[in-house]
């Protein structure tokens, strides 16, 4: 038996909108600690990891660990039927092959039940080791979204470099090149507008902008985004989900292979 009641239902709607473009089908894993998901895109270049901790739910009941395979497109269709102020409850039985989403309006005068068929999804779970990153950048999420969007109109690859001077996003394409440099800035009125750069070691990596752009779909979830970079690891782009969890996107960097060099 599984029953999760989320008062701020709009969070779940936003979560879905931020992963459904990257992944078609995925298993949601429920345990006593929380509601989570890990899934890769079909080309195994990007990974999304979602966690909503049990404390964030008004009511959280999960009798035994359960993995539910869902088509995210269909799930999003159903969640779009929920109002932004609605309370969403997710319900499933052990051994059942459906999941129910219940939407309650804040005034309790409307209750809607949507039942969705579950799928059997065979997916690999990747072990992600905790790592010390060379550089960590925290910045306003809409600023990051804007940069990715702007750069993708020029080129298809972004080079992110962190140095003493700041963080530089650059790209090159047929029509020309673009460089955007952000400097550390903590003297702002609102803490979420700050740009904080923690650099242990300078780092410079290339990434496909197409994926970065799909990560920025999570912008409505959080005012800030944290980008963690290490030269031999995938980048992590993290958005906090209220006080209850996070969405982390991992993206494998572009690499220059020896065998790709001209002979």
């Amino acid at each position: 038996m599984l029953e999760l009641r989320l008062v701020q239902g709009s969070l779940l709607k936003k979560v879905l909108e931020s992963i459904k473009d990257l992944v078609n089908d995925a298993n949601f894993d429920c345990s006593s600690t929380g509601f989570s998901l890990q899934a890769m895109d079909s080309s195994h270049v990007a990974l999304v990891s979602l966690l909503l901790r049990s404390e964030g739910f008004e009511h959280y009941r999960c009798d035994r660990n359960l993995s539910m395979g869902m088509n995210l497109g269909n799930m999003s269709k159903m969640l779009r039927c929920a109002g932004n102020d609605d309370i969403i409850t997710i319900k499933a039985d052990d051994g059942g092959d459906t999941v129910t989403f219940m939407f309650e309006s804040p005034t309790q005068d409307k209750i809607a039940d949507f039942e969705m068929k579950l799928m059997d999804i065979d997916s690999e779970h990747l072990g992600i080791p905790d790592a010390e990153y060379h550089s960590i950048v925290r910045m306003p999420s809409n600023e990051f979204s804007r940069i990715c969007k702007d750069l993708s109109s020029i080129g298809d690859t972004v080079v992110i470099s962190v140095t003493k001077e700041g963080v530089k996003f650059s790209t090159a394409g047929d029509i020309g090149t673009a460089n955007i440099v952000l400097r550390q800035n903590t003297t702002v009125d609102k803490p979420e507008d700050a740009i904080v750069i923690e650099m242990n070691e300078p780092v410079s990596l290339s990434f496909a902008l197409r994926y970065m752009n799909s990560f920025t779909k999570a912008t409505p979830l959080s005012d800030t985004v944290t980008i963690s970079l290490s030269s031999e690891l995938p980048v992590v782009v993290e958005y906090k989900v209220a006080e209850m969890g996070y969405i982390r996107y991992y993206l494998a960097p572009k690499i220059e292979e020896e065998e790709d060099t001209k002979t």
Binding site: H125, L126, G127, P129, A252, D260
Partner: peptide, 12 residues
Amino acid sequence: SQGRLESFFKPV
């Protein structure tokens, strides 16, 4: 030249 995630993280 795009890398794959599996070259960094191993399945569990």
